[in-house]
Design a protein around this nucleic acid. Sequence first.
DNA 1: TTAATACCTGAACATCTGCTCAATCGTTCC
DNA 2: GGAACGATTGAGCAGATGTTCAGGTATTAA
Lengths: 113, 113
Amino acid sequence: MNKNATHNHQETIRSARKALLNDETILGLTETFKVLSDPTRLKIVLALSREEMCVLDIARLLGVTESAISHQLRMLKTLRLVKHRKEGKMVFYSLDDEHIEDLIRVATRHISE
Amino acid sequence: MNKNATHNHQETIRSARKALLNDETILGLTETFKVLSDPTRLKIVLALSREEMCVLDIARLLGVTESAISHQLRMLKTLRLVKHRKEGKMVFYSLDDEHIEDLIRVATRHISE
DNA sequence: TTAATACCTGAACATCTGCTCAATCGTTCC
DNA sequence: GGAACGATTGAGCAGATGTTCAGGTATTAA
């Protein structure tokens, strides 16, 4: 007997469909993963996990231009991962998300095995 | 007195540097997040979290071509997230990573708040 | 052998991404 | 006021990304 005949495609698809999440959730998840998928942004998040920093200090720390950092910070701010505070000429950024560090921690454990 | 003068840039950068991870870890993390940052790949992973599936069933489930799925499966296979098993004409794919579901779970909790 | 099925592959394509550069804004100091 | 400094912005660009398309391999069935 053909083993393939024992495989019910319809049933498999129906069952797998239950594991899928709704489109809105999928979009939110991919957005979250995408923001952490760039080295510069990930480093910014890690740096801010300790204390707030001004734009220029982040730029110097990571060895990139202020402009590049500013662009990324805008994205992080839009996604509500960071918040900012003005003080004179400087703008201090800090983490605005308690869960993002958990995510990085779980992922770190994942790659170390 | 100027408040900015109280901010020690050198010390801030030195402190933040400790929170950064080595380049290899950063690369591994961004690679992990990137693979989950595409809706098609994320859905494939979710679908395979229940049971193994052949390429055509995945394609039908997600409403995309076999080719597109095959390309993504190759990437997932390269990154050791999935494994495959041949059975006649069909190739069954299944998850090859126990931790990736934890990551999705933590991220799901994150976006729901 | 021929046809059909399941899957894979490489090239081409449009789109997206992250950076640089130049210009600009806002604040502070002289 | 003007110069200096920190930060932001928009345009432009090179590289990456995901899909389609056409063609290919491998296996099975007639």
